[in-house]
Design a protein around this nucleic acid. Structure first.
Lengths: 156, 156
DNA sequence: CCCGCTGGGTTGGAAAATCCAACCCTCTCC
DNA sequence: GGAGAGGGTTGGATTTTCCAACCCAGCGGG
């Protein structure tokens, strides 16, 4: 999954280079749910065992997951999210919210996330500076790399 | 990219089945930036032309993008996000924020998003009910499908 | 009228990734 | 000493991706 020519330099692309391969984000989902053992991951994500093994190596190398011993004798461990891995949870939440909204017209969601406030979580992306929910029209893209402009709602 | 066995039913997986293939989210990024023409997409995403064509078909079929005529004679059009496509922007924002934070120790971000409040956007995911920023420890997963439990910080 | 350019693709064959079943190893339990 | 769980690895078939080349329509100029 290397860069092909010289596309726009972009943190979205760089992040996807780490977690954008098939199953990686599903692995992270399970790990965040506490299902960090190899065969739980196989069952719950549907990934083939060999692919899962390579994904796990990659995610550990990237510092997103870590192996934790939960039993010496027999040596057994599970995968857990690191701090960096937990910080990817917003990606999972927004993906899940989109799917719940657009892929389930009948509204029966396969999983609810209950927030500590007592309500089912409906995540909103807000601006840390002003606190408002971020809407597309309120954004202006400012590319920092010379030569990479945007034609749209932004001013290069 | 079909379901392999019968993994956990999940809106994250279902959403990734639509937009999780290589380049799809980069295409969406460009389209949201206003760069919706075929060869802009080729240049800016780095996708091979044939792959790009199949991704575009898929995204249009899924109702995430739509073709807009910007010139009759010669017939030319560009791809634009639908409402559903725009609602995937939070996914892009959270991916970008993670990459900026974890993949750029020197802090030189390839692109800034300026919010209408005047600040560079730092997105936060908040609970629509209580307004608080969502943290991992504040979540409890409630699977709705019998048989699919979670072992972690949740109570099935 | 003919040449080349732009925009938006399609095609064929080579290279890479994925899938799957089978196998392996260690340890535990009976 | 047999069975089973946990955590993988291996070989070969299948599927995707990749890439360069090609195609077509519509200008624009000479």
């Amino acid at each position: 999954m290397a860069a092909r020519k010289d596309p726009r330099p972009c943190s979205i692309a760089d992040t996807l280079a780490l977690v954008g391969e098939k199953y990686s984000l599903l692995v992270l989902r399970e790990v965040c749910l506490g299902n960090g053992r190899f065969d739980q991951l196989v069952r719950n994500t549907g990934a083939p065992r060999d692919i899962l093994a390579t994904r796990l190596r990659r995610l550990v190398d990237a510092g997103i997951l870590a192996k934790h011993l939960y039993s010496e004798r027999p040596q057994r461990f599970e995968y857990r999210p690191t701090r960096a891995g937990l910080e990817l949870e917003p990606v999972l939440m927004t993906l899940m919210a989109w799917g719940d909204r657009h892929l389930r017209p009948d509204g029966d969601r396969p999983m609810l996330l209950e927030h500590s406030c007592g309500q089912a979580l409906a995540p909103a992306v807000t601006c840390r500076a002003c606190g408002d929910e971020v809407r597309h029209e309120d954004l202006t893209a400012r590319p920092q790399t010379p030569g990479w402009t945007v034609t749209g709602p932004s001013a290069a």
